[in-house]
């Protein structure tokens, strides 16, 4: 095999080789992921809620009448008593204000996803960079970033949110950004830094420096890629945390959101039905079960990813 012949069309073959490698490692990880079972369960739950979220606009457009089924301003005119128990027209009944619970549930799923994923993305982007930079440079940079992390960890998030809601009004987007910043500069950044510390002392980092690689090269080519598995894992955990925080905050009525699972429970509570679970179960269970399921599903996926990226945890 002569090199000349093999690399005559180098550019495309380089790309092809990289693509093959990427798909191969993805496939390997996927096989390992499938073998973990808890991950598959988690993924199934996520897929179920993703379907609900995606189906809502379609149903609203073609099946459900807007003035009846709108999750915020709709009213079930045909029901004589609100909240109405489940019926054919309203599979999960209506809430104390006469709105369709299923529609609310599906509408909220979309914003829960948006919130969770955005918060996770912000957290992990900040956390990875903070961790890598702090570990790589050390010294003053590290000291400043880590003191900032201490502040973020000590920050009473709920109180801050109360103040912020009063001042500017906090919706899903703002909440995601706040959670992302607090967790990214805080706990997640610290965890990723401790991982990065074990990467920056590797001889391959020294080899890259000896080759003439600058700070940016070393950080983005050698440190960050070796943090990504852990970052991804923390991304899953952040999703869980974000959804849960949102539920708590809207239950307390601290968020300016139009509709969410937490808000559904809040409405139930403020109408005085919270303690009558057996009688008015459709007011409590769908929303609270959804919060529990979606939170735990991301957690399960995270746990199984942990097994995929940490060979030590793998059962042989």
């Amino acid at each position: 095999m002569s090199p000349q012949r093999t690399y005559s069309q180098t550019q495309p073959s380089l790309w092809k080789a990289r693509l093959t490698l990427a798909t191969r490692s993805l496939r390997q990880s996927w096989t390992l992921f499938l073998a973990t079972r808890i991950g598959v369960i988690g993924l199934a739950i996520i897929a179920f809620y993703a379907l609900l979220a995606a189906a809502h606009p379609i149903l609203m457009m073609f099946v459900w009448e807007e003035r009846v089924y709108d999750p915020v301003v709709g009213y079930a005119f045909e029901e004589t008593r609100q909240p109405a128990p489940p019926s054919l027209k309203h599979p999960l009944g209506t809430d104390p204000l006469g709105r369709d619970v299923l529609s609310q549930l599906m509408f909220s799923a979309r914003s829960e996803f948006m919130l969770g994923l955005l918060a996770a993305l912000v957290t992990v982007s900040i956390g990875t960079i903070v961790g890598a930079v702090s570990a790589y440079f050390g010294g003053v940079v590290d000291a400043v970033l880590m003191r900032l992390a201490d502040i973020m960890i000590m920050l009473p998030v709920i109180s801050v949110l109360v103040v912020l809601s009063a001042l500017i009004g906090v919706e899903h987007f703002e909440l995601a950004i706040i959670i992302g910043i607090v967790s990214g500069f805080g706990a997640t950044g610290v965890v990723l830094k401790s991982q990065a510390l074990s990467v920056v002392v590797k001889p391959y980092v020294e080899a890259a420096k000896t080759a003439g690689g600058g700070h940016v090269h070393v950080i983005f080519v050698h440190v960050v890629p070796n943090l990504l598995p852990l970052s991804f894992l923390y991304m899953m955990f952040t999703v869980t945390g974000a959804i849960f925080s949102e539920a708590v905050l809207s239950f307390l009525g601290l968020l300016d959101v139009r509709m969410s699972w937490g808000l559904m429970i809040h409405v139930t509570e403020s109408a005085g039905y919270l303690l009558q679970v057996t009688e008015y179960w459709w007011l409590i269970f769908p929303a609270s079960l959804s919060i529990t399921l979606l939170c735990s599903s991301f957690y399960l996926v995270g746990r199984s990813l942990d097994e995929v990226v940490n060979p030590r945890l793998r059962q042989l």
Partner: peptide, 23 residues
């Protein structure tokens, strides 16, 4: 240490070509 002196996520090509790339 030949086990630690190469980034486990980079191919042999990437590893050997790194000095060429940064220079």
């Amino acid at each position: 240490d030949p086990y630690e002196s190469m980034n486990p996520r980079r191919t042999i090509f990437d590893t050997v070509a790194e000095p060429l790339k940064v220079q």
